[in-house]
């Protein structure tokens, strides 16, 4: 049944490279998440409070991000923009694709979070003499944050998993690096098996860290 010899030695030899590449994976996904949270927040508030062209722009962003494949979005930033003479580096293709996608998904989560806080609370805090800024930062945002904390964690995991698509646009993060080594040695199965383990560990670390953080943040 098994007339295949597993060769793990080349993988082990390149393991440091893979681990280094996984740092790049983490870097691009964390950056995309930070940008995604900021843009997503703007999109959500725009969709909640504004009308007209800005509302349509935000809605188009959210619906496009949610209703097309992530790979399509990556290709669009990679090849589609090439039609206008914009040639991005693989790093920026992945970063922009991930940011676009994360912002769209997070915007919907944020919108749900803002809608879950009753408007009367805002009015009550204003009538207690708080400024609008105080009312938002001390009353509304802490509650919204609790609601969107888990969706943000999930999105972070998705961002890491999605960054693996970088290998299709020539980005040498964890998957791209793996493919590079695998096609050089033809030990495709061995390389990708190790990469799968690395991804699994990364995801578990993120989930574990977020659980620890939640235990500290939401003590009361």
């Amino acid at each position: 049944m098994f007339d295949y010899n597993f060769h793990w030695r080349p993988v082990m030899k390149n393991l440091p490279d893979l681990l280094e590449a996984s740092l790049l994976t983490l870097q691009v996904s964390v950056l995309a998440m930070i940008l995604g949270i900021i843009i997503g927040l703007c999109l959500a508030l725009t969709r909640l409070h504004l009308k007209g062209p800005l509302y349509w722009f935000a809605s188009a962003w959210v619906e496009l991000a949610r209703n097309t494949p992530a790979l399509f979005q990556l290709f669009f930033f990679g090849f589609g923009l090439g039609a206008f003479g914009l040639h991005l580096s693989p790093y920026f293709i992945v970063l922009m694709g991930l940011t676009f996608n994360c912002a769209g998904y997070l915007a919907e989560n944020f919108r749900g979070g803002f809608q879950a806080v009753p408007e009367t609370q805002l009015r009550a805090s204003r009538s207690l003499g708080m400024t609008a800024w105080q009312a938002y930062t001390r009353v509304v945002i802490p509650q919204v944050f609790r609601i969107v904390y888990h969706p943000i964690t999930n999105q972070m995991v998705w961002a890491v998993l999605m960054s693996s698509l970088g290998m299709l646009v020539g980005f040498r993060e964890l998957s791209g690096e793996t493919q590079f080594f695998a096609s050089r040695t033809f030990r495709i199965f061995e390389y990708f098996a190790v990469t799968a383990v690395i991804y699994y560990v990364i995801v578990k670390i993120i989930l574990g860290a977020s659980r620890l953080l939640a235990a500290r943040l939401f003590r009361y």
């Binding site: 049944m1 098994f2 295949y4 995991v157 998993l161 999605m162 693996s164 698509l165 290998m167 299709l168 998957s175 495709i188 199965f189 990708f192 098996a193 990469t195 799968a196 991804y199 699994y200 995801v203 578990k204």
Partner: peptide
């Protein structure tokens, strides 16, 4: 949980290259 924690693209490549190993 494994299938939710490993990128789909890796799963696909792994399985596609694993299947011939077991015949």
């Amino acid at each position: 949980d494994i299938f939710r924690s490993v990128p789909l693209i890796i799963q696909l490549v792994l399985f596609y290259n694993f299947a011939p190993i077991v015949g």
